[in-house]
Computed example of a mutant assay.
Amino acid sequence: MVRIMVVDDHAVVRSGMVMLLGGKNGMEIVGEAADGDEAIRLAETIKPDVVLMDISMPSGKDGLTATTELKKRLPDTAVLILTMHDDEAYLFRAIQAGASGYLLKSASHEELISAIRSVAEGNAYLHPTATKRLMSDYLDKLKRGDYGDTYELLSDREKEIMAKVAQGFSNKEIADQLIISVKTVESHKSNLMDKLGLKTKPDLVKLAMKKGLLNYD
């Protein structure tokens, strides 16, 4: 029996996965999470065989950041990215994060089941449009140390917070301006730093300057 955890911010999607996979095809849904932070906490407790991970989740850690953290803590758990993003950059970032597979939400039920079985057995699974050429390009980029412009993978909110951090606003000031909690600001900052591969605030400021974000108007 393949033990599966579903991570998606849409309750309807999670319910659909439970109806589709629960107790069928040798598969069992053992947990559900609505964001990356919840997914990491729950996965450490239930230790699923496979995690179906969405990428875009507005609260907490996004799917790519959560995948990186989850694989550090549970290296034997396979992560299958299940997303609507048919984008080369997201595919490459998912592989970087340690995902075993990448599948579009538009895939058929049969393909989803096949993908889950594949990653559960320790294999990789990519959706059909992820061609051999893309993998070749990715390996070339790895050799060159070039992962493309990961700034484009930031959400609009993360870009907004990045700009304000670079402009010198404190977490409290950013929270007040955007009408969100300080904890949410800190979470977004951590996520965007991970996505960009940045370690320090000066590095963030340098990138913000290159992107033309230091506009104080």
Rank of each mutant, 00 (worst) to 15 (best):
S56Y: 14
L21W: 08
M209V: 03
E160A: 09
D87V: 05
E111F: 06
D194I: 15
L204C: 10
G122H: 14
E69C: 02
V18Q: 11
R14G: 01
D217Q: 02
S108E: 13
A34P: 03
P75H: 02
V51T: 07
F169Y: 15
L74W: 03
P48A: 07
I4G: 15
H10W: 08
L103A: 03
T83E: 00
F92H: 10
G101P: 02
M5L: 15
V30F: 09
A175L: 11
K172M: 15
I113H: 07
Y90K: 02
D176R: 09
R144T: 07
A107I: 12
G16K: 09
L214F: 06
A130I: 14
G197Y: 08
T45E: 15
E44A: 06
R157S: 12
K159Q: 14
S106N: 05
Y125L: 09
E121G: 12
K210H: 04
A78R: 13
A94D: 01
P58M: 00
K195F: 14
R41I: 02
A163D: 01
D37S: 11
A89M: 11
K132Q: 12
T129R: 02
V79W: 00
G212L: 05
E186K: 11
L154G: 10
K24F: 12
M53D: 06
E152V: 08
I180S: 08
S118C: 15
T150S: 13
V165Y: 15
S15D: 12
P48K: 14
